[in-house]
């Protein structure tokens, strides 16, 4: 996609600007974005921050952003919190409905967990979780035991496998996770 202002370079960012009182959104390249800098609002700049939350073209942005966030958050807000990975910013009215990346859950864990009012997750676990890894290991141990005709071990391992599978499916209480 080409820049909507110069039509020469590829699009690097999205900016918003007011034309005759109507806000329009433009997909522009870095150089056009710098030229149009005077028309920026804080949220535009926040929106233009890339992954990593830092922008080389706007060194002053991060300081400006933090100040804006503190004002927006107001008394009692969670001012100054920003995901270090994607740049998602929490303000007083954040709904946590459009988080930027999985790391946001670590950054805003307390806020999200408080709002969810849940007892925690009790469903299926991915194969690389402790229960998932245990299932894979037990299956391989059972195969070995069958090959070596250790039937007493097969029986014991199968019981352990059933237990691990139910934990992986979220039917039992999590162990060691």
């Amino acid at each position: 996609m080409k820049c909507e202002l110069c039509s020469l370079n590829n699009v690097d960012r999205v900016i918003k600007r007011q034309v005759n009182g109507i806000e329009e959104e433009l997909f522009v390249c870095n150089s056009c974005a710098i030229e149009a800098n005077s028309g920026y609002s804080a949220s535009d700049i926040a929106g233009s921050l890339g992954q990593g939350g830092e922008d080389k073209d706007f060194p002053q942005v991060n300081v400006f952003m933090d100040a804006t966030i503190n004002i927006a958050a107001g008394p009692g807000g969670v001012a100054g919190k920003r995901c270090p990975t994607c740049g998602f910013v929490v303000t007083k009215n954040s709904s946590y409905k459009n988080l930027g990346c999985p790391e946001c859950y670590k950054t805003f864990e307390k806020e999200i967990f408080d709002r969810k009012l849940a007892d925690g997750y009790s469903g299926k676990r991915p194969p690389d979780s402790a229960a998932g890894v245990e299932v894979v290991a037990l299956k391989s141990q059972i195969e070995d035991a069958v090959r070596e005709s250790r039937y007493a071990d097969v029986f014991r391992l199968k019981l352990q496998l059933e237990d691990a599978e139910s934990r992986k499916k979220g039917l039992g209480r999590p162990k060691g996770e």
Binding site: M1, R13, E25, A46, S48, Q51, N98, C101
Partner: peptide, 25 residues
């Protein structure tokens, strides 16, 4: 399912988060 180490996909352009914008990045 979403993958670890990648930003989420979102179509909501009104939100503040950069990853939600449907631009080039």
């Amino acid at each position: 399912r979403n993958l670890k180490g990648h930003s989420f996909i979102s179509s909501d352009k009104s939100d503040q988060c950069v990853c939600g914008l449907d631009g080039l990045r």
